[in-house]
Structure formats: C-alpha cells, structure tokens
Design a protein around this nucleic acid. Structure first.
Lengths: 209, 209
DNA sequence: GTTTGATTCAAACGAACGTATGACTGAAGC
DNA sequence: GCTTCAGTCATACGTTCGTTTGAATCAAAC
C-alpha cells in the first residue's frame, strides 16, 4: 500500500483534531505534527487554516448529503407520498451510516459536525455549498405533503429537531468516551431509538394557536 | 441607580461575548473593554478566564435548574404520576422562560448554553455542580414511571433529545439574527411547538429490538 | 493624620498562534 | 546535462493571547 500523500494525511489529522478540540482549539502545528508533515504544508496545500476546515467539512458532509438525496429519490420512485417514518429514516439514517471508517461508530464525525455548526465564528460555518440547502428543501416539501395542516414555520422547526436529536445525542456519547457507548451494537440501537423518537415527534398533530 | 460594580459588569460582558463568539473566540481584553474595566480585573475578581466562564455559567444555569426543580415539585404535590405532557412542559419550559432580561427572547442565553456544552475543551465544561445531575435524575425517574416498558437506556436517549431540541432550535434562530424570529410572539410559538414535538416524541412506544 | 485593606491601573511577560519566505529536494521533460 | 516545477523544509515575522506585577487610588478604621 502506497503511503498516503501529505495532503490526505493533513485532511485526516485535521478531521480528527477539529472534532476532538474544536476549530480554535486546534493549532496548525498540532495538525501537521499528527500528520507527520511540515508546518508550511497547510499553507501550501490549502491556503489557510480556514480553507483547510472547509475542505475537511466538505469531505465529511458530502457523502451524507448524497445518501440523503439518494434515499429520497428511492422513496419518490416508489410513491409520490412517502410515509413520515420512511422520510425520517431516509433523512436521519445517513447521519448514522455515512461515517468514514476508523471513526468510533460515527460519533467522532458527529462531533465534528456539531463543532462546526455550533461555532459562532462566521469563517467556521462558511464552508457550506448550495447542495445542503437543496436537500433540505426537498425533504421539507416531502414532509409537507406527508403532514398537511402543519404550518411551514412549524414544519421547519420540526426538521431542525431531527438534526438536533441525531447530532447532539452522538456528541454526548462521544464526549463521555464510554467505550460501551461506541460499540456498533450501541450505535445501531441509537439509530433505531432516534427513528422511533423522531417519527413520533414529526407525526404529532399541529400545535393549536 | 448606583452603577453596578466592576465584578457584575464583567460578568454581564462575558456572558454576552461568550455567547456571541464562544469561549475561545473571546479574549479577556474584549470582555474588560466592553465592561469598561481594566484588563487585570478579571484576574483579580475571578482568578482566570476559565473561572470567569464558570461563574457566568453558574449564573445562567442556576435559575433554570431551580425552575425545573420547582416545576417537578409542583407536579408531584398534585399527583404521584404526572402525565408526559406535564413533565415535558415542566422540564423544557424553563429553558424558554428563565432567561435574564436584555436577552433577545432568551436566544442569546441558549446560545451560551450550547456554546458551553458543545465545546470540546474540558475546562469549558467543568463548571457543573451536582445540582444539574440531581434534577435530571429526578425527571428521569418521573418519566420512567410515566413511560413503563421503556428501557433506562432508551429513556436517557429521549431525555437528551429534549435538551437537544430546545437548545439547538433557539441557537439557529439566534445565529440567523432574523429580528422576526426574536420577537416574543415567535418565542412563544417556538415554546409551544417544542412541547408538542417533544410530548409526542417522549410518548412513542418503546423501540422493538 | 495615619494606617489598612480592597480595588484599579498601566505596563510588561513569555508563550502560542497563523502565515510568509526562501532555500532545498528529486523526479520528469527536453 | 540542464531546466522545470511541484513539493517539502527550517526558520522567522508580527500579532494576540492569558497572566502577572508593582505602583497608584481611595474610603473606612483607628
């Protein structure tokens, strides 16, 4: 096996350290040390620390987005009005499944996503492209058809809830570093719990004024 | 009105800046500048930046915890087995209500809480005392009685979901800085949406193996 | 009037940070 | 053999950071 090139090793090291220590808590020196690369390599390959984060984020998010998109396509090919459970599974499932290898049950990647999304700095959240919004809008429309009577605002609220539950759960698991929580069987259980929880939540009747 | 003392002004400035820029994104100099105090005042009154954060966190969390505790007491004084809706409202309600004045509909405080809870650094999360755990355990027991048949693990998962939904929703609102989302009426709507969403989610039947 | 103790102040410390620079390396192209 | 060029390297620059220091300030106690 050929040794991975410097660029890839920096990406892997940055992905890990950003997840473990956050963006600001990770120095470029720590990344290059872990990657076995020279300090200047980050500037050479990515331009700056912020652009490195954007590259890391894209690499992590893209397969999740693609899986969410494909899942919705699959549902819509079968019926024009998928059930709420199916939509929840297609949307939330990839947040559990599409995690790179070597990741402790995907928890580290979830940690990274939350770290990025919750960082107040603009530069940290500016990696996003139009693809994420497109997928979310498509699910929004599908949920809207499955849940008539729900106002668009309340529907948006509930979709945020899906992201919140899936992301935060796994982050807490990761922070506690309890090995039992990181086993594949525990991850599978959390996946099923989340789908149960979220399907019931999404299916709730509209809130009366 | 007597001008507030330096210590209080530093606490207020730190609360605001930690929420807006995160812990690492906020320098002690920025805090003392906003507070109109000298740089060394933080060291004098709090010892260090980390201890200042702990003081800020305690000031924000304590009223929420007290309200959660009081709400549960009120329910248990009436009946030994409160309904799921009542428990959800008593637990999640204070996360919307117990916000200090001057806070944009409580969103800034929620932002601060998420900033603290999601920061990977140990020092940022080490402010917590035994009170938070006590309240959570009490609610856990009450939910367990209201939802027999749910395994303790799945119940814990669902309680994390409550925190996730309430916190993350308001953070996104705050980050977007849409003034319409910060109005009291929008905050009231979000509160009701959350209770509907979470009551249905908590009431879901246990996940089959 | 003097002492005391709490508080505020300007200034400086050393460390760590992101980034830039210019020399070096080694294989590919001619 | 010489050139080219992407990549790597040690090193340094300027800035910002949290913290510390020791003098100045000031009201209260004596």
């Amino acid at each position: 096996m050929a040794p991975p090139d410097t660029r890839t090793q920096i990406l892997a090291a940055a992905e890990r350290l950003f997840a473990e220590r956050g963006y600001r808590g990770t120095s470029v020196r720590a990344i290059t040390d872990l990657a076995g690369a020279n300090l200047a390599a980050v500037g050479y390959h990515f331009g700056s620390k912020a652009e490195l984060l954007a590259a890391v984020a894209r690499r992590v998010i893209e397969p999740i987005n693609a899986a969410q998109c494909a899942g919705l396509d699959r549902l819509l090919a079968r019926t024009s009005d998928p059930a709420v459970t199916e939509l929840v599974e297609a949307f939330a499932g990839p947040l559990f499944d599409e995690m790179p290898a070597g990741d402790e049950g995907g928890a580290r990647t979830s940690r990274l996503i939350v770290t990025i999304l919750s960082d107040p700095a603009e530069e940290v959240r500016s990696w996003t492209g139009p693809a994420e919004d497109t997928v979310r809008e498509r699910y929004l429309a599908a949920f809207g058809r499955a849940l008539p009577g729900l106002s668009p605002e309340e529907l948006r609220f509930r979709m945020r809830g899906i992201l919140a539950v899936t992301a935060v759960d796994r982050v807490e698991v990761y922070q506690r570093r309890d090995p039992a929580c990181l086993s594949p069987v525990a991850g599978e259980a959390a996946r099923n719990w989340a789908i149960t929880f979220l399907t019931a939540a999404m299916s709730a009747p509209p809130t009366g004024t």
